[in-house]
Amino acid sequence: MSHDSQLLKGAVKLLVLRLLAQEPMYGYQIIKLLRDRSEGYFRLGEGGLYPLLHELENGGLVSARWQHQEGRPSRRYYRLSARGERELARRRQQWQGFARAVDLVLEVSHG
C-alpha cells in the first residue's frame, strides 16, 4: 500500500510521541515497535526516523540521554517531556477528530 507522505509524516510523529509516552526508547526500538504493532504497515526509511527524533528533541517535545552498555554500543534513549505530553494530547485529539470526520463522510458516501 502506498502512503501519502504528508499524512504519513503527521501520523508517524503522533505514533512516535505515543510510543515514547509508554517508556523511554532508542531509535531502533521505536522502528521495530512501529513495524510490529502496525503489522508491518509502518516501515519507515530507517534513516528518516532520526531527523524526526531530533526535530522533536530540538522542539523540546522529547529529551535524549545516552545509556552506556557494557561491551555493546551505547544507546540514545528518548523520553517524552511534559511539553511532549501536551503535544501528544493535542495531536491525538486532532487525529481523532480528523479520522471521525473522514469516517462520517465515507459512511455517507457508501450509504
Binding site: G45, E46, G47, Y50, P51, H54, E55, N58
Partner: peptide
C-alpha cells in the same frame, strides 16, 4: 541500504539540526 542514501539522510538530519 535500509538506512538510506547518506546524502539524503544527511540532508534530513541537517534540516532537523539547524541550530
Amino acid at each position: 541500504r535500509i538506512f538510506g542514501e547518506p546524502e539524503s539522510v544527511a540532508e534530513q538530519l541537517r534540516r532537523a539540526n539547524g541550530r
